[in-house]
Simulated scan of single mutants.
Amino acid sequence: MALSIRGATLEDAKGISDLIVPLTKKYVCPTCDESVHNALITSMSEGNIVNYLSQNYQYVVAVDEKSEIIGVAGIRDSSHLFHLFVSDNYQGQGLSRKLWERIKSEALTNGNSGRFTVNSAINSESIYLSFGFIRTGEIRNRDGMIDIPMELETAC
């Protein structure tokens, strides 16, 4: 299997949304209050991904040999990891780490001083811990959105 990771473009918005919406429904929504499910899913629509790509967000995508998007990482302001998703068929193969390393490297190139944050879904904490993130607070409920604030300080 030939996989590659590249910077995302506006033309990738639909593919990114098509990947992350079902994964969010499967893995994130069950850990949050039902009252936020629609807002969460809407935030990942093609139109919103276009908005993110047009603003202060940077995305990288992993594509397979058919150029289908199988993984994505998005970062806001070169410091806050906003999205990190890998297709079920490719999980457990180190792809999330490769996506993280690529987006982190680009953020550092773009002026990040070495501090990153993420609001981890409950069932994603172990992945971020393996990347070196640490909890900065307890599990929190922000109007139904359940997450864990985490950060990573890295030497540049």
Rank of each mutant, 00 (worst) to 15 (best):
M1Q: 06
M1S: 14
A2W: 00
A2G: 02
S4C: 04
R6W: 01
R6G: 13
A8Y: 00
T9D: 13
L10S: 12
S17A: 03
S17Q: 04
L19A: 10
L19S: 07
I20F: 10
V21H: 01
P22H: 05
P30R: 11
P30Y: 02
L40T: 15
S43Q: 05
S43P: 10
G47W: 08
V50Q: 14
V50C: 13
N51D: 14
Y52H: 15
Y57T: 10
V60W: 02
V63D: 01
S67A: 13
I70F: 01
G71M: 05
A73F: 05
I75Q: 00
S79D: 08
L84H: 06
L84W: 02
F85I: 02
D88K: 04
Y90T: 02
G92S: 01
Q93W: 04
L95G: 04
L95A: 04
L95M: 06
K98E: 14
L99W: 02
R102N: 15
I103C: 07
S105Q: 10
S105M: 07
N110I: 05
F116E: 05
T117P: 00
S120A: 14
A121Y: 06
S126V: 05
L129H: 13
F131L: 08
F131A: 01
G132K: 02
G132M: 06
R140V: 10
D143E: 14
D143S: 14
M145S: 12
I146F: 05
I148V: 15
E153Y: 15
A155H: 12
C156Q: 14
